[in-house]
Nucleic acid binder design. Structure first.
Length: 427
RNA sequence: GUGGCUGUAGCUCAAUUGGUUAGAGCGCCGGACUGUGGCUCCGGAGGUUGCGGGUUCAAUCCCCGUCAGCCACCCCA
């Protein structure tokens, strides 16, 4: 068992690459529909691009090393710092809001498991320079429509959304101290699906009242109405819920309401999110999150860029591939031949070559046997290559100026004048 | 990074209490079939049993180490 790719890295055989290309094509198609422009950056960056502000979570899993010029470098673990740098460099010149997408290959150093490798491709869609909740809805709609473009429906996946501003108001209202919010977020994130009550084991030191915080019934964190009700009793609650309410309303107006549910136990691991955060899950909840993102208004400035509001999401190819394979969504073959040409004898080969080249010049994909063999063998090969028809040329056909066109699916045959074939017609 | 389970042909799996030349199906190549594919039949290639060491007359099987995969934790994309 030698000659395998490094652990956590993938070889893409033709059938694998066919699926990957299908995914990329769908991503690009929907992104274009939403008016997003594609950009890219280098896969290798200076290490300090990530150690500065991206969040310590990512730092410990960086695929980093020192290069031959004694520079500390890292394979990019995420696209946002690169995006921030690129926007910063041209910030003044770019018309806002900026709508950009990219499909970078991202890396991290950690032990692999199903759906988590050392490398993956991830669609990144970002909107920069817009605070309106319409922007949040736009981005979530794009994520939903990508899944719809893969033929997934409301029964297959859901978007669960929350809002850091709501969470913050909620926790402060429940006497969690400001400097303990991140810890409280983390506990909320880990809340099990079957737990009835959400509690914070922070102890008196972390709550404003000096007492252990009150538990919250889990059911009041799920759904827009229960959450609204919960917030209405807290100081500033009515104001804090507005962006979330507006985003949900916008998505509902678009007709995407069936895909969305409010769930305040969605937090997202990254520290830099400031507003709405969301994740896409398969409804069976067998796999990891399909996609995730949110609003990160302070990040560009913190990363040394312009002070612009921003939001974005990432969707990886690994979990998505698993889902597509599980649903048996078969992508088309990587090649689609128009015909397979067959020379009955060696004397027929020149005409086959001439015909093949004429057809290829007309944009028709054709193949022929590269080694002389019997007709039976060549038909076998034609079928194996997935050709819809075989064009058979033998001495009799050459004599009559015809060729036998055999439909390999139906098993029927017709004689077609060579002139027609040379001009790219099979009948 | 921690712990558990598992490693036999390209794939899915066999191989008496440790026993002689490690088998089968599928796939691949060839033949029956030198002008007609999918079926059938026949044949062939393909293994240092993940790797290294130990116990034993003898190891695919038992022990240790290591690597890899899967699962959980951690964490996240």
């Amino acid at each position: 068992m030698q000659g395998k790719a490094l652990p956590g890295f993938r070889d893409f055989y033709p059938e694998d690459l066919t699926l990957r290309n299908h995914i990329f094509a769908t991503w690009r198609s929907v992104a274009a529909r939403y008016g997003f422009e594609e950009y890219d950056g280098p896969p290798l960056e200076a290490l300090d691009l990530y150690t500065r502000k991206s969040g310590e979570e990512i730092e410990q899993q960086l695929y980093s090393f020192r290069d031959k010029g004694d520079r500390d470098v890292a394979l990019r673990p995420e696209m946002t710092p690169t995006l921030a740098r690129m926007v910063a460099a041209r910030g003044q010149a770019l018309k806002k809001p900026i709508r950009w997408f990219s499909i970078p290959q991202l890396f991290r150093y950690e032990r692999q498991q199903r759906g988590r490798l050392k490398e993956h491709f991830q669609l990144n869609m970002d909107i920069i320079g817009e605070t309106s909740a319409l922007a949040d809805a736009e981005l979530i709609a794009a994520a939903i429509d990508i899944m719809r473009a893969f033929a997934f429906g409301p029964g297959d996946f859901k978007v669960r959304m929350s809002d850091r501003r709501v969470l913050r108001t909620l926790l402060l209202g429940y006497d969690i101290r400001e400097d303990s919010l991140q810890q409280a977020f983390a506990m909320l994130d880990k809340t099990g699906k079957d737990e009835e009550w959400v509690t914070w084991q922070l102890g008196g030191a972390y709550t404003g009242s000096g007492q252990t915080s009150r538990p919250i019934p889990r059911r009041s964190l799920i759904g827009l109405e229960p959450v609204s009700e919960l917030l209405s009793s807290l100081p500033g609650g009515g104001h804090a819920i507005e962006p979330l309410r507006e985003t949900v309303a916008t998505l509902t107006t678009m007709g995407l309401g069936d895909f969305v549910e409010v769930d305040l136990t969605i937090v997202r691991g990254l520290a830099y999110y400031t507003g709405i955060v969301f994740e896409l899950f398969d409804t069976q909840h067998k796999l990891r999150a399909i996609a995730g993102g949110g609003r990160y208004d302070g990040l560009l400035k913190a990363a040394g860029g312009p002070d612009l509001p921003a939001l974005g999401f990432g969707m990886g190819d690994v979990v998505l591939s698993e889902l597509l394979k599980e649903r048996g969504v078969a992508p088309k073959a990587s090649i689609e031949l128009g015909a397979f040409l067959i020379a009955v004898g060696g004397d027929d080969m020149p005409l086959v070559l001439k015909l093949a080249h004429a057809m290829r010049d007309r944009g028709i994909a054709v193949e022929y046997g590269l080694r002389h063999a019997g007709v039976r063998k060549q038909l076998e090969l034609a079928a194996a290559r997935g050709a819809p028809r075989a064009v058979i040329i033998g001495p009799e056909e050459r004599q009559a100026g015809l060729a036998v066109v055999r439909d390999l699916n139906a098993g029927t045959e017709a004689k077609v004048p060579l002139d027609k074939l040379l001009n790219g017609y099979f009948d």
